[in-house]
Amino acid sequence: MSKIAYSAFIAFLASIGTLVSVHALSSDEEVDSPREARDITLDELAEHDSAESCWKAIHGGVYDITDYVPNHPTEKEVILEWCGRESSEAWDNKRPGRPHSPGAERQLENYRIGRLVDDQGEPLEPAAAAPEQQSEAPADAVDDEVGLDEADTRLAKALLSGHYPDGRYRGVFSDGGEMQVNVQFDLRDGRIGSLSYRHLAYAGTNYRRLDEDDELYPVLEQHRQLGEALEGRELHEIFLLYTSQRLAHDVDGYSGATLRGNKVHSAMRDALNRGVYSWP
């Protein structure tokens, strides 16, 4: 028994030694010339969205990983899904909250073909647009369909371009010296689920303690409808909360300027800023 283990031990040392020495020898010859940084726009990136030619933008760099796709340890669909797109989020969340390893990062560099730029040729970083800068999104487009139109979707996505790992989030909206909304929701594959209120109050009234026959009770009901309406939606669709009448019924009772969708929106944005409260 000990002979086999001993032989394996020697073989192991020899193999690791070979690997390390080959590395040491080859890195001596390596010329560390930075790869030419070609400017690539989102439009050009989007053309390479298939297994035949798969480009991805990750943290400002653009990588042609077509040759690597067959070697990726997961199902092909997982890696192909992100072709032609800004993929930093996928890169940073190999599993929820867990980025790829330094080894993978080094490997990725071998596929670098350029950097991602906008139409003006300025470099694009995935989180360039900080959400705080434009908290007042003009989402007043009136639409019969409950959903953001294309322009709004694009804008909403840009405003929420940070990456939010899957998990449970909690956030708060406070104003006038009181906590008005405390919201909890889950993110799964970028979609909202199980939205609930841990606290809901205005002007000293705790809405979660109201009886069903209370005249303000519909307000609580409508907030619950907001949660139901957001269930399964993509994260950027929280901008719909600015026009909450499109998500909740009985708008008359709702528009009493007490508790409003934009407060829920604010609390959710607070939750996102705080980061994951608990992992899935």
Binding site: L19, V20, V22, H23, S26, S27, E30, Y68, N71, S101, P102, G103, R106, Q107, N110
Partner: peptide, 9 residues
């Protein structure tokens, strides 16, 4: 992917 990647892993 390259010996350097293997060693770095």
């Amino acid at each position: 992917a390259g010996v350097d990647v293997a060693v770095l892993t």
